[in-house]
Each structure stands twice: as structure tokens, then as C-alpha cells.
Design a protein around this nucleic acid. Structure first.
Lengths: 337, 337
DNA sequence: TTGTATGCGTTATCAG
DNA sequence: CTGATAACGCATACAA
């Protein structure tokens, strides 16, 4: 059936040289005469030989793969990030092993263990959910544990530890600015809609609260937890039966739910209520009216992560910046005045 | 730094047995006494030993990984499919290597070659773009080439060839039913909005055309190619300056663009125009009015693919059904009457 | 510049 | 039931 692939011995025999020479040619060593190089290359090209990655991995202890863990790939933000990471790593000759861990500790822990058994060269966590809520150090212990084996990178989250590198966007500031925009418009009843206590959600909340405090508003009573579901958010707002003239959501899906609520309630946007989403995704555009949303430069963050990661892989002694920070910017659309 | 992991010799030494015995215990062979088994297991548990997958792969010629190729993971449909596949394969003890190929032939070809060098146990293509347009056989040759090395599965596309297995949804029928719904409502100017000539897009078009023909309408003049972008679709429709009372789109993003067009033109939905999307994604819900959309049972298709794939991997002689077909159903929302 | 021999960590075959 | 030992395919230090 599946005829065994040719190995280095076959090539050596066909080219009339030793396996060492073949190996040298394959790996681009300069210690081989041009004539033999051509001879070997001809054979390799002829029979379409590719070195066995398992054997390479056995000796070199690397198979040029990096592991990527996301809570769910269905989320647009994660998908986008994975897309950029995959592109970047591939450019550097690294393949990606993907794992979807879910949001609970057990899954994160289990998937981390599993993916580590694959002897990946590095591990990238995508999503601030992996950074925990910053309160309970124990929740991120599995990351420090993983970092003992391979360099660990976190996209959009910050975790302390040796061999752990982070890239975060300045959510606190972005959220502060968005909320300040609303308070500056005289909004008094501004909600903060969040579905988690992840690292980034916490920072967004801080920014929101800072803005409200500065405006002399109660920074706590507007903080609401909701499910990450358009209709669930809408219904939650319906049930609240409370005057609202501003909403800051931690993602566009939640913001879209808020828009539904306003539209179906006959509340005018942005006249009576202003709404700001987060991630600047297609959902913000699909919605009517289109949602003003914070863009968090996923591409920039991912490219930076790839380049810092490669720095380590190229030189195991290299110590790139432990944490890089990126700004966010609010994209103005129709839900803000 | 990264202390070398323990190997089977270490365990053997610590347990006072031979490596063969350790291997037997690890692989659950019954040819080992209960006492020694416990002794070895104790050591393994104690020091947290895991067999080196490279060495296993070298001998067994498999590392229990399957390759997944998508044109882009950013697309919601692909992301959803990958999510289900990953879950299914992981359950069966297989890891996933992900590749994003883009939509052009060169990328598909190159990524296929790359992922094959990883000695994956099987390859799954997600998306009908890989099935080509069915006209040019040459465009899918790289798939038949890949199938010579490993079993190949295609999600939502049909390609002929040995060792190639497909799962498709009955897009022709679903599209026919959706278009028939509109004609039955007396719609006369129904557009078919498509962004590609992929296998599924072609089937959707056929269904649309069948419905229009049956209703005595011209099946060709409504077929329009658009960019897969909400605003681009809207603007294309603006420019068309043509009476339209029905739209069938090959995905929800395009349908969302159509909704924008109608809303901004003051055309009433579904009174003056009815719109049907495809994939039943969040975009359909995010939109206002919410878009009626064809659900194509991604989960079902993926689970079926996983189970057929495992059948082959469990028994290399097994020949599961070459092509499985799944129905679609229209989810009625606010853009149809 | 080229070839030989060894190690990488398993699994599997074959004796015992 | 258990233990040597030979593959598996490659990279590389060492010899020539």
C-alpha cells in the first residue's frame, strides 16, 4: 500500500556517496565539493527525497513545531490570532500544533500536558483567559510548570515567571478612553458588560472604573456580568429595567447584544445610548447600527510574539523583552456620537 | 537549563527491570506479572515519565497526528469545523497540526507538501475551495497525490480518487429550497450572491437556478459575483441600480452586506425584499434584522469525518463509505416572510 | 573533502 | 514472564 519512503541510505547508494555526505548536502553544509553536491542534489530531486522528521527529531530533540493553545478557535479574536501566528511561524519553518483547551482549569491543564509531550519547541497561549484573574497565583502554576520545559508566550495576558514572555495590549487605557468618551458626552448611567474575570477583562474594568470615578460617577454599580451570547445579553438588559445611556462591552458579541436591546426597545443610538464594543471584528460591522469598537492590533501582537520567539529559538541564551505592550485605538462607527 | 527528560533506561534501572519490561508496562501488554507491573508503574508515576514521541514515531512510523488544512482559520465556518475536528481527534488520542493555505493553488499545493513531511496519519481539508470548481481535473491533482501517502478527507467538498473520502452537505437541495421559498412568495428578481467558484458555491448556484427555472424565471441574470466583505457587497448592490426583491447569499457575511444595502436604501425587510444567508453563524444573529440562514450541520459532518477516519486508522484495510451526504435546513429569522 | 561509527529512545523479535 | 538486541533514519564527532 503505502510504499516506504526512501531513506538517506537509499540516496547515498544511488548517488554513490556516504550517508554523511547526503546529510551534509541536505543540511547545506559548505564542507562538500560542488561536484558531489550537484550529484547528490540531482538524485534527491529525481526521487523527491525528504528527510524523516522523526529521526531528525530523535537526534536533534526538536521537530520544529510550536504548540498553540486557545480556549476556543471559534472565537473570532482567537481565530485571527492563530491565523497570524501560523503565518509567522510557517515563514520561519515551524509548524503549528493546535489545541483547544476550553475555559476551565482542568482543560487548560490537561491540554498543556498533552501538547508538551509532543516535544514542541515553544508554547503559545492565546487569550487572556490563561492569565487568570491575577488574584490566585495558583491558577497559573501550570504555565510556570510548562515554562520549565519550553519557552512560553502569552498573547494578551501577563503571567510572571522564568521563561515566560507576554504580549499585552493596553486595555486599561483603551477602556478608560472609551468610557471617558461617554462621560464627556454627559452620560451618567454607563454599564460595563463582561463575561469573564480574565486578565484583560479585569484591566478593561479598571479603565472603565477609573473613567467613571474621574467623572464623579459610581464605578461599581454599572459592572454587570453576562453570558457571551447576543440574545442572552439582550435579555439580561431587558430584565434589568434600569436607565442606561452608555455601554462598554468587553467584546463585540456582547456589544451586539446591547445594540439588539436598544433597537428592540426603541432607544435611539447614539442619541439616547452610546455603545462601545471590543476587538473590532466583523460582528461590529454586521450589526446595524455598526458598532464603535476598540481595535487591539492583533496582527502587531502576533508578529511581535513570533519574532521574539524566534530570537529565543535561534539562540537559546537570548533573553528578549519579557513583556511588550501595545496600544489600542477606538474605531468610531455609528454607536457613538 | 532544560534538563533532559528521563528515558526508558532510567526507568528500567530505577525499577530494577529491563527496558523491554518497561515498554510492555507502558504499552499495556498482558505478558507481565502483576507485581513487576506495579513496581514499574510506581516508578513511572513517581518520576512522571512519558515515552519520547520521536523515538516512538521512528519505530512505529506514526506520531498520532492528523493534519488539518484550511484556506483561512479566520472564517467562522472553518473555525467551527476545526474546533469540532480537534475535539474529535483529541478524544481518539490524535493531535492536530494546522495549516492555513490561502485560497490560491500555489498555497494549497505548498502547504500540502509541507504538512505531509510531518508524517501525519491522515490529512483533512476543510472547505469546498479544495474541491475546485469541478471543471478542471488538474486543479485537484495535488489532493490525489497526497492521497497516495495518507488517507485524505475533505469537509464540504467532493473529489474523486483512491484513498480520498468526502463529506458534503446537500447544498444544491438547500439552496433550491431557499430559492423556492422566495419564488413561492412571488419574488421575481432574486439575486444569487457568491464570492467563489468552489464546489459548494457551484452546488448552491445549481439549486438556485433550478428553483428559478421551475418558477419560470431567468436562472442566469441574477447570478452575481461579489467580494466577501460586508461593505463591498452593500456597495455593489447600490451600484447595480436594479430592482431586487430577493437575495440568496453563499454565506452570512455576504447576506449581512445585502441587509445593509436594504436597510440603508429604505427597502423594507422582508416586505420588499427577502434575504437568505448561509452557515447560520453569529453574523446572521448580529445583524438587524436577523438573517434567515441555512444551517449545514458542521458538527455532524465533522464527527462523521472523525469516525470514518478512525475506522481507517484502526484497521488499515477498512474502507469506509467514500462519500457521506448531509442535509441542510433553513433557519427562519427576520429576513424572510 | 569524504567516509565510518555512534547515539538518539522506542518497539518488537527472539531466546531463555 | 523477562531480558538482550536489532531495527527505525538521521546528524555528527572523529578518522582518513
Amino acid at each position: 500500500m503505502k510504499k516506504d519512503a526512501l531513506n538517506i541510505y537509499d540516496i547515498a547508494k544511488m548517488a554513490g556517496v556516504s550517508i554523511a555526505t547526503v546529510s551534509r548536502v541536505v543540511n547545506g553544509s559548505d564542507k562538500v565539493s560542488e561536484t558531489t553536491r550537484q550529484k547528490v542534489l540531482a538524485v534527491i530531486d529525481e526521487v523527491d527525497y525528504t528527510p524523516n522528521v522523526f529521526a531528525q527529531g530523535l537526534g536533534l530533540k526538536t521537530m520544529h513545531t510550536v504548540g498553540i493553545l486557545v480556549p476556543t478557535i471559534v472565537d473570532h479574536y482567537m481565530a485571527t490570532a492563530v491565523s497570524y501566528l501560523e503565518r509567522g511561524f510557517k515563514e520561519q519553518g515551524y509548524d503549528c500544533i493546535l489545541g483547544c483547551s476550553g475555559f476551565d482549569a482542568e482543560g487548560k491543564h490537561a491540554k498543556t500536558e498533552m501538547i508538551l509531550t509532543k516535544h514542541i519547541d515553544a508554547l503559545v497561549y492565546v487569550g487572556s483567559t490563561y492569565a487568570g484573574d491575577g488574584r490566585d497565583e495558583g491558577t497559573t502554576d501550570y504555565i510556570r510548570e510548562a515554562a520549565k520545559q519550553v519557552p512560553v508566550f502569552i498573547i494578551n495576558g501577563s503571567v510572571e515567571g522564568d521563561n515566560i514572555y507576554c504580549a499585552v495590549c493596553e486595555d486599561e487605557q483603551a477602556s478608560y478612553e472609551a468610557a471617558s468618551l461617554l462621560t464627556s458626552h454627559g452620560r451618567k448611567d454607563i454599564l460595563f458588560l463582561s463575561d469573564s474575570r480574565s486578565y484583560s477583562a479585569i484591566n478593561k474594568k479598571k479603565g472603565y472604573q477609573r473613567a467613571l470615578s474621574e467623572a464623579g460617577l459610581d464605578p461599581d454599580e454599572g459592572v454587570i456580568f453576562v453570558d457571551d451570547d447576543i440574545h442572552a445579553v439582550r435579555d439580561t438588559l431587558f430584565r434589568m429595567d434600569r436607565k442606561i445611556d452608555g455601554i462598554l462591552a468587553v467584546n463585540d458579541k456582547i456589544a451586539a447584544g446591547a445594540v439588539k436591546y436598544a433597537v428592540e426597545s426603541g432607544i435611539r443610538i447614539p442619541g439616547d445610548i452610546e455603545i462601545v464594543g471590543y476587538n473590532n471584528s466583523q460582528l461590529a460591522i454586521s450589526s446595524t447600527p455598526e458598532i464603535s469598537s476598540v481595535d487591539n492590533y492583533t496582527e502587531l501582537i502576533c508578529d511581535d510574539t513570533v519574532s521574539r520567539l524566534m530570537k529565543i529559538l535561534d539562540d537559546r541564551e537570548a533573553k528578549p523583552q519579557r513583556e511588550t505592550r501595545f496600544p489600542c485605538t477606538l474605531i468610531y462607527r455609528e454607536t457613538t456620537g
